[in-house]
């Protein structure tokens, strides 16, 4: 790890000011993506701004038909929350499957969403559930938020404060893990709200995306059987030693079926 300056602000305002002071400053939430990168000397922030003591970034509540989760809520807290389990059980299940128990004790929803790792679970839930990412400055639709690999719509000095999820009628998540890293090779989150189904896929490409073929099939009828015979094009899908694009395309349909039967 390269040396850096460490800051521990107590308000979003202070954190934002610190973030604006240096081009190479980074926010530290759970640190379970950033610190491993820094340990490998692949990231060299000048300043780390620890959000651990910042007020107003915690809490889980259901406001009407909207589930609201503070950015610094850990995966373990979200997974164990009765509010989440009742409102969107598929989300609780997704969160309970992130990384391993120790990662879930430190990793946060805000950190995961801001990092936009192409293999992360949370972005699939955000995109399928039409989440709103709330920052210290504005509200951003999930559709606009996830731009590309490790790239989001966040601007310099902008800090995620909470994520809002509209409660769907049905939702389900299924993933197939990379045998080594245990990140999803393919993860599919399905959500049905009103009359439409959204299917978000993570792990399969450079960024989370909606899968039209799956959505079309499930919009006809929301049932695993609707996906029989559906194929997904391999264009844009990742190909690596663990899974070729064709295998990933195949797994998208299989995981969509499993998510549909779980929903």
């Amino acid at each position: 790890m390269y040396p850096f300056n460490y800051h521990r602000p107590t308000s979003v305002r202070q954190a934002s000011a610190l973030l604006g002071k240096s081009e190479d400053a980074r926010l530290l939430a759970g640190g379970h993506s950033l610190l491993p990168m820094m340990k490998q000397r692949l990231a060299q922030p000048s300043d780390l701004i620890d959000l651990g003591l910042v007020e107003g970034l915690r809490g889980i509540e259901l406001k009407g038909r909207t589930l609201q989760i503070g950015a610094m809520m850990t995966h373990a807290e979200v997974a164990a929350s009765d509010v989440v389990r009742e409102a969107i059980p598929a989300l609780a299940e997704l969160v309970a499957s992130i990384g391993d128990p120790h990662v879930r004790h430190r990793g946060t929803i805000g950190g995961s969403v801001a990092n936009n790792d192409p293999n992360a679970d949370y972005p699939a839930a955000c995109l399928a559930l039409e989440a709103t990412i709330v920052t210290n400055r504005r509200r951003i639709d999930a559709d606009e938020f996830f731009v590309d690999m490790f790239e989001t719509a966040l601007e310099p000095g902008e800090i995620i404060t909470k994520i809002q999820f509209p409660v769907p009628r049905r939702a389900g998540y299924a993933k197939f893990r990379n045998p080594a890293s245990r990140y999803p090779l393919v993860g599919v989150f399905l959500a049905k709200r009103g009359g439409t189904v959204r299917a978000a896929v993570t792990g399969a490409a450079t960024c989370v995306f909606r899968c039209k073929e799956v959505e079309d099939a499930l919009n006809a009828r929301f049932a695993p059987k609707s996906l029989d015979g559906v194929t997904v094009p391999t264009d844009g899908l990742n190909s690596d030693m663990h899974a070729g694009a064709d295998y990933r395309a195949h797994l998208i349909v299989v995981m969509a079926k499993r998510a549909a039967s779980a929903a």
């Binding site: 045998p179 080594a180 890293s181 245990r182 030693m241 663990h242």
Partner: peptide, 12 residues
């Protein structure tokens, strides 16, 4: 290519 536990799958 398999230089860490991210790519070299250890039995869990």
């Amino acid at each position: 290519v398999t230089g860490s536990f991210n790519d070299y799958a250890m039995p869990r």
